[in-house]
Design a protein around this nucleic acid. Structure first.
Lengths: 197, 197
DNA sequence: CGCCGAGTTGAACTGAATCAAGAAACGTGG
DNA sequence: CCACGTTTCTTGATTCAGTTCAACTCGGCG
């Protein structure tokens, strides 16, 4: 691995590249090409990374901190995803469909975020077969996640969904305001509160 | 396009290749390579293409007829997808995760099905960048479909879901027994019956 | 005919939403 | 450090969409 900071970037970016390579192997050339288009930035709490109803421009990787994506449906927000360190968050719907995003994305804590422009990503896909594969693997992982969520909404009760979150991602319950957790689990804040009691 | 039947196969297979190429362009070489691994077969009504709790071996493309995939959850089946002509149906969860499939897949009418072995597909992905891209595009489409379903389950009432099916795929209501349509829409057969009245 | 699966209809039940009011926790400025 | 307003969380009473269970109808088909 090339440790020249010009190419490998900050430790956060190098960590992110390692993460990508663990999903699908990357040659030094692909790794270097990818690193050219990854940008690390800091954002304060409550910062909006992606505005709903606008086309998505970037994919985000949480290096540190916490973000959520949500539908600003009606007057009632519905949280879709709570992403902690190591989580990729993006308005995939917009990226894939080319239409404006349904989702909005914002930080819940001060965060370090790595951004990649979709435009750059498209070019990287074309140029590097390995990166195209990485893209395929990543979206496959998202598909599976969604699949599980769908199953969970269809078959599990509110209480069961809460219990399975407690088992799988207990940290979330510590760090995220309960109202967001509630809508993430597909229930009202009142219901969540009762379940916890 | 090579019309030698050895390569372009039956009209159904050639149609399927055209469909794939419309999702993402395929060079003659990639097209020919893909065609080598596509097999057309006829199945009677009620035939099980994919057994639940077994690893998925094939991806299916409906050339003609009608199939459904469903969870054989508890004693109560839940239909996930009703696929008519031109629809790709597979136990993606199993293919992507490597674990046994949750889904079961069966024909609802006598059908002509094109099958591709996942094993062959993997090799094609590695060998042809264009096919890898096709794979990425296809799964992206699935992701978006699922995304919409999730939104629909979260935000729409039973009646609204029925109406939007009537608008988008009215043929389904003609061809599929209502009990399956009901669970596809995430409601009981009784509820669907009341909504229709 | 009479059986059988598919669809409809009715009555009672229930999980979760809604509406409303209070209690705790939090941050900000004095 | 406390007082204040604001936001977050809890608790209670009521309502509602959709489920469940059970009976009944209809249209084939042996």
């Amino acid at each position: 691995m090339n440790m020249d900071p010009q190419f490998s970037g900050s430790p956060a970016i190098s960590w992110a590249l390692d993460y990508f390579a663990s999903v699908s192997p990357l040659s030094p050339a692909a790794r270097e090409a990818l690193s050219q288009y990854m940008f690390l930035e800091s954002y304060p709490k409550k910062y909006t990374l992606q505005q709903a109803r606008r086309p998505a421009q970037h994919l985000f990787l949480v290096a540190c901190g916490l973000v959520r994506s949500f539908y600003p449906e009606d007057n009632r927000e519905v949280t879709l995803l709570l992403g902690m360190e190591g989580c990729v968050v993006c308005a995939l719907d917009s990226h894939l469909s080319g239409r404006p995003a349904y989702y909005q994305i914002e930080t819940l804590e001060d965060s370090e975020i790595i951004a990649i422009a979709y435009q750059d990503l498209e070019r990287l896909y074309q140029k590097h077969h390995e990166i195209e594969r990485l893209g395929r693997m990543m979206i496959s992982m998202y598909y599976l996640q969604q699949d599980e969520e769908l199953r969970s909404l269809r078959f599990k009760s509110a209480r069961e969904r809460y219990i399975s979150l407690m088992e799988k991602q207990p940290e979330i319950l510590q760090r995220v305001p309960l109202q967001y957790v509630a809508s993430y689990l597909g229930m009202t804040a009142e219901t969540l509160s009762r379940i916890r009691g």
